[in-house]
């Protein structure tokens, strides 16, 4: 009997320690979110996706909302992305490069995790892995592992002193690395020469502002169910698509705290579209189909298999 008490005591202790370790790990990740956004630095990083490898130089100064950062591509179309607090502007010498800048501004390494990661725990577990060395600095690997097989996992190697992510990998459910970013060199502290924070190119395009001007209407007149657990509606609106001002669609945005999933719903035009799934660089997937007299399009950072599973389980209804 004593042995049973002892064993169960050990197990409770182990469980408590594991829970505490997980809490610590979430704390470390939160610190890393702040470092990734605000830590002043100068560095060079690689970005690799299927069939693509590019290099950027990144300079950052200031802190809080006063962060000023500029990154420029070292290969491919010349482009710069300048962020002042929450405002992001792309610069390029010609329109073609400006289009490339728009794509590059989608994800601004090392700040790939959302500002608020509290909501992630429902859909992802955090795990501390081995130590490593990147850009001549020691770092610790952490993994955000999805609790189902519909989403990508994320692995981050956080620098030991500052928790700055030195390398971030997006990992598919089959453990394939679909995208990765990595510093090849990084120096902490604001660059001495402030000129490196100023854009050089003539053409500019405002990418985003933290106060988005899209009209907000969270009162959705359709109901959606069948999404993977953890995804919640964060915004619903009626809008026109870029380049199609005359056409109105409903856009519902769902998030699991880490990635976003957009659902576009519109009345069926002509013949029902055949359901299809596609992916852009293996990271963003789209799926389309129809239900009743409505056709829908899903876009999100999910693996293709996950996206097609969502498209199959999705239920759209009018209350």
């Amino acid at each position: 009997m004593k042995r049973v008490y002892f064993l169960s005591g050990c197990m409770l202790l182990a469980a408590a320690m594991a829970a505490r370790a997980a809490d610590d790990d979430w704390g470390v990740l939160k610190k890393s979110v702040a470092s990734a956004r605000q830590l002043p630095l100068s560095g060079t990083y690689l970005h690799q996706m299927s069939g693509l490898l590019e290099t950027f130089r990144l300079y950052r100064a200031g802190d809080g909302d006063g962060v000023l950062e500029r990154r420029e591509s070292l290969d491919g179309p010349p482009r710069e992305i300048v962020r002042t607090g929450g405002d992001v502007v792309g610069y390029a010498p010609d329109t073609k490069s400006l289009a490339a800048a728009r794509l590059s501004a989608m994800r601004l390494f090392p700040a790939l995790l959302p500002d608020e990661i509290d909501g992630i725990a429902q859909s992802y577990a955090v795990r501390r892995l081995t130590g490593d060395r990147i850009a001549q600095k020691d770092c610790q690997w952490f993994e955000l592992k999805p609790r189902d097989t519909l989403r990508y996992g994320v692995r981050l190697c956080l620098e030991n002193a500052t928790q700055l992510p030195l390398k971030i990998m997006t990992v598919s459910p089959k453990s394939d690395v679909v995208e990765q970013y990595m510093f090849t060199d990084v120096e902490f502290g604001a660059p001495r020469n402030r000129a490196v924070l100023k854009p050089h190119y003539r053409l500019s395009y405002p990418m985003r502002t933290l106060a988005t001007q899209v009209p907000e209407s969270t009162a959705a007149d359709i109901e959606v169910s069948g999404l993977p657990t953890g995804f919640r509606l964060v915004r619903a609106m009626k809008r026109s698509l870029p380049g199609q001002a005359d056409k109105q669609v409903r856009q519902l945005i769902f998030s699991d705290g880490l990635v976003m999933l957009s659902l576009f719903v519109e009345p069926m035009m002509g013949d029902p579209r055949t359901p299809r799934v596609s992916s852009l660089h293996g990271v963003i997937s789209t799926a389309s189909g129809h239900q009743g007299d409505m056709q829908f399009t899903l876009v999100g950072d999910l693996p293709e298999q996950g996206m097609s599973a969502v498209a199959r389980s999705l239920k759209i209804s009018r209350p």
Binding site: M106, R208, L210, T212, F264, V299
Partner: peptide, 14 residues
Amino acid sequence: YVQAHQEMAADQSL
């Protein structure tokens, strides 16, 4: 659709 998604996905305030 991808563009419309990205416009919104880039908005951290969401």
